[in-house]
Design a protein around this nucleic acid. Structure first.
Lengths: 216, 216
DNA sequence: CAAATACATACTACCTAGTAGGTTCTTTGC
DNA sequence: GCAAAGAACCTACTAGGTAGTATGTATTTG
C-alpha cells in the first residue's frame, strides 16, 4: 500500500490491506485497458497471484469495478468537503474545492480514470439487476458531488461574485474543465512538485474564470 | 443516411452509401458499449445484416473503429476551420470555433464519443504494429486540431484580449470544458432547438470566460 | 483440534474475432 | 445482348480468450 493511498485511507473504509492491494491493482488494470478489455487475470498478474484471491473477495468483475469507482468518488468527496470550509467567501471556497479535486486527480489518476469510465457506462445501462443497488449508490454519490459544486456556485451568484447563469449547464462545464485532466494527464519522470502545482493552479483558475469571476 | 450525416459528408470523403451506413452503425455500437465490449455482430445487428458485409469493407474491428474516429475528427476540424474566419478579432473567432465544435458534438454524439474513446486508448498503447500508421494519422489530426485553438488563443493573448497564461495547459482546460459535453449530453425527446442553442451558448461562454476574456 | 479464512489449481461453458467458401447481383468488354 | 469477371454480400465454421466455479490446501483462530 503506497503512501499516496494511505493519505486517502478514509475512502477505503475498513478494508484490510490485502483487499486494498487488490483495489489498487484493479484500478491500474482498468485504467490501462478499460473495464471490458481488462481481465481478472490481468489484475492478478499485477499482484503476482491468481484469480482465486480476487474471487475470494469479490463475486464478480463488475463488483470489483464498482468498488474502485466508489473509492475514487469517496476520495473526491472527502477532499472537496474538506476544502469547502477553507476561504472566507463562496468564490475562495470554490477555488479550494477545485484545487482539492485536481489534486486528488493527479495523485490517484488510476482511480479517477476508472470513475470517469464508470460515468460513461451508466449511461449505456450495461448491468445486471443485482448490481442496480450499487449503481444507485454511485449515482447518488455523483449527484451529491455535483450538488456540492452547484450549491456553492449559486452562493457565489447570490453574493454577486459571478454573473447570473444556468447552474445546471455551468456546473457541467466547470467540472468538465477539471475532469478532462483525467484524459490528458500523464505522470512524467521529470515532473517536479512545482510543475504539478502550476498545473493545478492554471486549471483551477480557468474553471473559476469560466464562471465569470474576476480572478487576480 | 440521415440528413445530419449528409451535412457533414465532407468528413466521409469518397465513401459510398453502404460503407457510410456501416460507419454510422459502428459509431452507434461503439458509443453504447465501448470498443472492447461492442462486437462486430452488434454492428451487424443494427444494420440488419451479417458480419460478412462488414468484413467485406474492413479488415478488422480496429480498422473500423479507427475510421469512425477519423471521421469524427474530420467533422470537428471541418467545422472549426470554417468558424476560424468568422468574427473580426481572435476572441470572436474563438467563440465561433467553440460554437462549431459544440454543434458538431451534439449533432454527431456517437462519432464524438468514439473519438474521445480513441483518445483514451492511444495513451494505453493497445494496438498492433500495422495499425500504427493510422494511429499516427489520428494523433497528427488531434495535434492539428488542438493547434488551431492554441494558436488562436495566443493571438488573443497578443492582442491583449485575454491575460498572459500557459497556453499548453489552458488549451486543455478550454477543450475540456467543451469535450466533457460528450460525456454528459443525451439526446432528449422534448429538447427544442432553443434548448440546444442555450446549451451551446452557455458552454461556449464558459470556455471563453475561462481564458479570462470579458464576455458580455 | 475444529472451523473458518485466505488463498491456489484445474476446470467448463460461452462468447467473439476472424476465415473460407458459396451465392447473388452488377458491371464490363466484345 | 451476352458471357465473364468481379463486387457485395451470406453461411458455417474455428480457434482463442475469459468470466466464473468447484475443489483442494495451508494457515490462522477460537
Amino acid at each position: 500500500m503506497s503512501d499516496v493511498m494511505r493519505a486517502h485511507s478514509a475512502a477505503f473504509g475498513d478494508m484490510d490491506d490485502s483487499k486494498i492491494d487488490i483495489l489498487n491493482a484493479a484500478a491500474e488494470a482498468f485504467m490501462r485497458k478499460g473495464f471490458a478489455a481488462a481481465s481478472i487475470d490481468d489484475v492478478a498478474d499485477i499482484l503476482g497471484c491468481t484469480k482465486g484471491r480476487i474471487y475470494h473477495h469479490y463475486r464478480s468483475k463488475a463488483d470489483l469495478f464498482f468498488d474502485v469507482h466508489l473509492c475514487g468518488m469517496a476520495m473526491d468527496i472527502g477532499a472537496v468537503r474538506e476544502a469547502m470550509s477553507e476561504g472566507h467567501d463562496p468564490l475562495e471556497q470554490l477555488y479550494h474545492m477545485a484545487v482539492g479535486h485536481l489534486t486528488v486527480i493527479i495523485s490517484n489518476i488510476a482511480y479517477q480514470r476508472v470513475a470517469v469510465q464508470g460515468l460513461e457506462m451508466h449511461l449505456t445501462g450495461a448491468t445486471t439487476p443485482k448490481q442496480m443497488k450499487t449503481l444507485k449508490q454511485i449515482l447518488l454519490l455523483r449527484d451529491e458531488y455535483e450538488g456540492l459544486f452547484a450549491s456553492k456556485i449559486e452562493e457565489a451568484m447570490a453574493a454577486g461574485q459571478v454573473p447570473q447563469q444556468n447552474t445546471r449547464l455551468t456546473v457541467k462545464a466547470f467540472l468538465g474543465s477539471l475532469n478532462w485532466t483525467t484524459i490528458w494527464y500523464r505522470e512524467r519522470r521529470n515532473q517536479s512538485k512545482e510543475d504539478r502545482r502550476k498545473l493545478v493552479y492554471e486549471v483551477a483558475t480557468f474553471a473559476l474564470r469560466g464562471l465569470g469571476a474576476r480572478v487576480r
